[in-house]
């Protein structure tokens, strides 16, 4: 059995052109409806990809093209990621208490005691 090991750099999509899920995705439950994809756009080199919305597409290539046409019409982006929505796992709203409340009173975790030079952006 051969395992392919690939070094991933920041910004790379695992799986290259087939980004957005395993190589053999299961057929959508209702094949008359295209699956939903989440779209992430990098607005400039050096910035992170940000979630901008979702769309329908039959496969990853179509999803990237649709994202180009729907979300980058006004020069919003220089790079697009898409991922099928079913691959996103989210925290549950009912667990919000134990998940997030404990951070509320721990001011010492904030790096507010350092002075940053003005030239440093995007921190």
């Amino acid at each position: 059995m051969a395992f392919q090991i690939r070094r991933l750099l920041y910004g790379d999509i695992p799986g290259g052109e087939t980004g957005g899920g395993p190589a053999n995705p299961q057929p959508a439950p209702d094949s008359s409806e295209w699956p939903l994809w989440e779209v992430f756009i990098r607005s400039r080199q050096g910035l992170d990809h940000k979630h901008v919305g979702s769309l329908h597409a039959a496969d990853a290539r179509m999803a990237v093209e649709n994202a180009r046409d729907v979300y980058t019409r006004r020069m919003e982006g220089v790079s697009i990621w898409v991922v099928e929505s079913r691959h996103i796992h989210a925290s549950q709203p009912e667990e919000a208490g134990p998940f997030y409340d404990p951070a509320a009173d721990k001011a010492y975790r904030h790096p507010t005691f350092y002075d940053l030079p003005k030239e440093i952006d995007h921190m």
């Binding site: 769309l55 597409a57 649709n66 729907v70 019409r73």
Partner: peptide, 11 residues
């Protein structure tokens, strides 16, 4: 036929 294709062709 689909919203996304409608936008694509209009672009």
């Amino acid at each position: 036929p689909e919203l996304e294709q409608d936008i694509a062709l209009t672009n």
